[in-house]
């Protein structure tokens, strides 16, 4: 065997190892679509009696006793006043004579476009962020981020968007979008706070279990119904308000509403609910 043959043999061995490594990593690192299928399969197996489309109803999709109560609440929905207030705000003229309708169309039925990846800025844009950005672009002050007017406008826009399907896209031509998705995914599965809980602990592996007097909701469908009127709050609130509340419950310091942590988490959670209908605003316990 000549020196050239030896070198060739070594190169082939390295290439073989490299290919083996690549195939192994492809098998172990799943992409968003594989994640979503595994995620949805998990809930379908855990709650075989729940029709897939019903997961958008949160805990009421798995808890028949509470469902009846909830359905009677929905006859006179507590978020109705918020939708009306949101309608007024949506059509109120800014100082420059424009309104939110100039950004989102005549009735703001654009829920299906959010959250989305903004390639130019390299960030996730939620609907609440877009509402405030529209106001700021028209020389108005942004709303506070977790409740109040932002929730009212969001309620109006979500109400008009009912029936649209969650269709979050992670563009394949921008690695930053996948990184934002992965960040949200890591957040969902990572334990935090002194109580050492991950989102997945309550809303996946023990979904449907009792924590004190409350049953935890399945994570599949979590992103469809916002904003919500929570009986505990006695008012409307956004998804990021709820994220913060969950973190406080497990004694973790909440992140800022509309910051990258919660926006990326919303990106992931919404992607996991792709295919379900938006049905916000909603009433929740």
């Amino acid at each position: 065997m000549t020196i050239g043959d030896k070198a060739m043999k070594t190169i082939i061995q390295y290439l073989a190892f490299g290919l083996l490594g690549l195939s192994l990593s492809a098998a172990t690192i799943a992409g968003p679509e594989e994640d979503r299928k595994a995620f949805q399969n998990f809930y379908e197996n855990r709650f075989p009696d729940t029709p897939v489309n019903d997961f958008q109803n949160g805990v009421y999709s798995i808890l028949p006793s509470a469902r009846e109560q909830w359905q009677s609440i929905e006859e006179f929905p507590p978020y109705e006043l918020s939708v009306e207030a949101g309608e007024k705000l949506f059509h109120s003229k800014f100082v420059n004579g424009k309104s939110l309708a100039d950004c989102f169309g005549s009735n703001g039925a654009v829920r299906e476009k959010y959250p989305h990846w903004d390639k130019a800025r390299g960030m996730v844009v939620t609907m609440e962020r877009a509402i405030n950005e529209c106001r700021v672009a028209n020389a108005e002050r942004p709303y506070r981020l977790k409740k109040g007017k932002i929730a009212d406008v969001s309620a109006y826009m979500s109400f008009n968007s009912r029936g649209q399907k969650v269709n979050v896209v992670i563009p394949s031509d921008d690695a930053r979008a996948l990184a934002a998705y992965e960040d949200g995914k890591e957040h969902f599965y990572t334990k935090r706070g002194q109580l050492n809980f991950a989102c997945a602990d309550c809303h996946m592996y023990t979904a449907g279990a009792l924590y004190r007097a409350d049953t935890t909701s399945p994570g599949f469908g979590h992103a469809t119904s916002w904003p919500v009127f929570r009986s505990k709050w006695q008012e409307m609130g956004t998804l990021h308000r709820r994220f913060g509340g969950c973190h406080k419950n497990i004694r973790a310091t909440p992140y800022k509403a509309q910051g990258s942590e919660y926006s990326n988490l919303e990106y992931f959670v919404s992607y996991m609910s792709n295919g379900l209908e938006f049905n916000g605003p909603a009433a929740r316990k």
Binding site: Y189, T190, K191, R192, A200
Partner: peptide, 23 residues
């Protein structure tokens, strides 16, 4: 002590969170 526990949690979680992702 709580800070030390927080650090430990972060270290453990950075190595183990993927185990919770359903396959």
């Amino acid at each position: 002590k709580l800070v030390a526990a927080t650090k430990l949690q972060a270290k453990i979680e950075s190595e183990t969170w993927q185990m919770r992702v359903p396959k």
